[in-house]
Design a protein around this nucleic acid. Structure first.
Length: 424
RNA sequence: GCCGAGGUCGCAUAGCCCGGUAUUGCGCGGGCCUGGAAAGCCCGUGGGAUCUUUCCCUCGCGAGUUCAAAUCUCGCCCUCGGCGCCA
């Protein structure tokens, strides 16, 4: 959510950002109008409240000196003031509520480096990493590899839960655990604190960190308790400090979170999605930074650097892209994706997403830090380190052998105690 | 699940019985003092509006009673403690 000062003093910045995104200005104008209405009615109600408070003080004085007649005189003068205040207050509350629910839907201001374009075809190449693997045979896609090795039981996953649920088993499950451990160790070495978050959140906290439409398409809701299963540990870990005023000495807060992630994946179907590339549940090692506004762009590059260091150490081939305006979403001001090469699919596909959300989440979460000029919103950033299911797919496809076995990346061998994944 | 206690400004606290301007300490920021510091003293330290001067709101949340609610009434949420159940 953008700060109100943006609408009052720099509406032109929001308008030109909407132009870059190719969306209309209606909501901006309406927010500004409602803000004016709110301020006006709020001021009038405040004046009436002042009258009432003055009268109440007068009555208190009169009663203290035993002058009942004077007290009653004041009382009759202000008899109907309460009703007037209620009426104005109801109107001003309504304006405020409308203003802010509209404001929640207005996206963050994009960084100037964000390329303009309508969809992911217009994302720009940032860098290429690792060697594209060459095979002396026709490489298989990961779905064939998990089937022939018995590593994932999709049919029984569908039976006990539903489509896109799965049982992961044997050496692939061991590799999954190794990735979690390795990813967490990698980031702890770089000064990040390991945190395991709650896997469910309440609505209020969740609204602080995500696009509202995600409640329909992404998150699972748990009734009757009104909880939501987290779609990523970014959500609880960012909301962790909501409603807090953070001492500057605590900043930057650097966290590595490890958790299962739950996603409805509404609308995703099709043969190309078979396997574990797009599933309802996976585990993710996530990087989180909460910092002072002036430092956030440096931290954004740091998070990208960590992801690159981690993926380079796995020996995989991938590229980094700079996400364009049309592919950006509501919350981030700038986003890099890492896209791993999948030889079986013959394409680069998204495995890491690295975002600077500036003060957008912090404003909604009322998450501030203390400065000598008062309290000011912090900036929040997040980046995938390892999304296990997709990393497993990249490893399977890039490190596969002709017999269908899969070589384990060097750095993971100590965690598994073997050099290749064996079939079940 | 049952019983009990509690939720007040960044933290800690007083006020609640008996309705009438949110108390004090710590921390933090600024100032005075100093060669410099410490100590001491003074001011500030939640949100908002504003004619820049003042005003309004804020005591877990919401309703009610009242001229007036941190304070009284009702409902809800959360935390802590005890008991029960439990990986």
């Amino acid at each position: 959510m953008l700060d109100m000062s943006m609408f009052r003093d720099h509406a032109d910045v929001i308008r030109s950002d909407h132009d870059r995104r190719g969306i209309p200005h209606d909501s901006i104008d309406e927010v500004i109008r409602l803000d004016g209405e709110w301020r006006k009615s709020r001021y009038e109600a405040d004046q009436l409240r002042k009258e009432r408070n003055d009268a109440a003080r007068g009555i208190a004085e009169a009663k203290k000196s035993g002058d009942e007649a004077a007290a009653n005189a004041i009382l009759s003068e202000v008899a109907d003031i309460g009703a007037k205040i209620d009426e104005l207050a109801a109107y001003s509350d309504e304006c405020l509520l409308k203003r802010d629910s509209l404001r929640m839907g207005i996206p963050n201001i994009l960084h100037e480096d964000v390329p303009v374009g309508e969809d992911d075809q217009k994302n720009t190449l940032h860098s290429l990493h690792g060697e594209k693997p060459e095979f002396g045979f026709e490489p298989r896609n990961h779905n064939d590899l998990i089937d022939m090795n018995g590593w994932v039981d999709q049919a029984r996953g569908a039976k006990v839960a539903g489509s896109r649920f799965y049982f992961m088993q044997g050496d692939l499950a061991r590799l999954e655990m190794a990735l979690q451990q390795y990813g967490a160790d990698f980031l702890m070495d770089r000064g990040y604190t390991l945190v395991q978050p709650p896997l469910m959140m309440n609505r209020e906290a969740y609204e602080g960190v995500t696009d509202l439409s995600d409640f329909e398409t992404v998150m699972y809701g748990i009734d009757p308790d009104k909880y939501y299963l987290i779609a990523t540990s970014e959500h609880p870990l960012t909301a962790m400090r909501m409603d807090e005023i953070i001492e500057p000495s605590e900043l930057p807060i650097k966290i590595v979170g490890v958790s299962p992630c739950f996603r409805r994946e509404v609308g995703a179907h099709g043969l190309s999605d078979r396997g574990i590339w797009r599933v309802h549940q996976f585990t993710k090692v996530e990087q989180i930074v909460i910092c002072k506004p002036d430092d956030s762009w440096d931290h954004h590059e740091e998070l990208l650097g960590n992801a690159i260091g981690l993926w380079d150490s796995l020996g995989l081939h991938y590229r980094v892209v700079n996400i364009c305006t049309g592919d950006m979403g509501t919350v981030a001001a700038k986003k890099y994706d890492l896209e791993a090469w999948l030889p079986g699919a013959g394409a680069y596909k998204e495995v890491v997403s690295c975002s600077n959300c500036t003060d957008y989440q912090a404003n909604r979460l009322r998450m501030r830090y203390r400065t000598s000029e008062g309290n000011s919103a912090v900036h929040t950033l997040n980046s995938t380190a390892i999304a296990t299911s997709r990393t497993l797919v990249a490893i399977m496809e890039q490190c596969q052998n002709e017999d269908g076995s899969v070589s384990v990346p060097e750095v993971l061998r100590p965690y598994l105690g073997k050099n290749a994944l064996e079939s079940l």
